[in-house]
């Protein structure tokens, strides 16, 4: 029974016109626009996320260095006040 359903499904199936780049674009200009905007929308979020990660790493390192120097300064001040 399952085999009949599978074979019937395979015979009834038709190509899905889902790819807008291949089937939606009627002209060369449209096709180029689809390809260009697909690339734009693919790479823009990757660049944004990459930029944010780079910014976080840079700011975290700078903050760590600043905090470290402040902790060292506090420590020195504490030793001097005890001495």
């Amino acid at each position: 029974m399952l085999a009949i359903v599978v074979v019937a499904g395979a015979l009834l199936a038709d190509a899905a016109s889902a790819c807008t780049v291949c089937l939606g674009a009627q002209t060369e200009a449209s096709r180029k626009a689809f390809v260009g905007t697909t690339a734009f929308l693919t790479f823009l979020p990757l660049m944004v996320v990459g930029g944010i990660i780079a910014l976080f790493v840079r700011r975290t390192l700078a903050q760590e260095a600043l905090d470290e120097s402040r902790r060292a300064g506090d420590l020195d001040a504490g030793v001097e006040s005890q001495g």
Binding site: A25, A29, S30, K32, A33, L41, L44
Partner: peptide, 14 residues
């Protein structure tokens, strides 16, 4: 905005 710009380009090209 990126989505709107992309849609604009496609409509303009078509």
């Amino acid at each position: 905005f990126a989505g709107m710009i992309s849609a604009f380009f496609i409509v303009k090209a078509a």
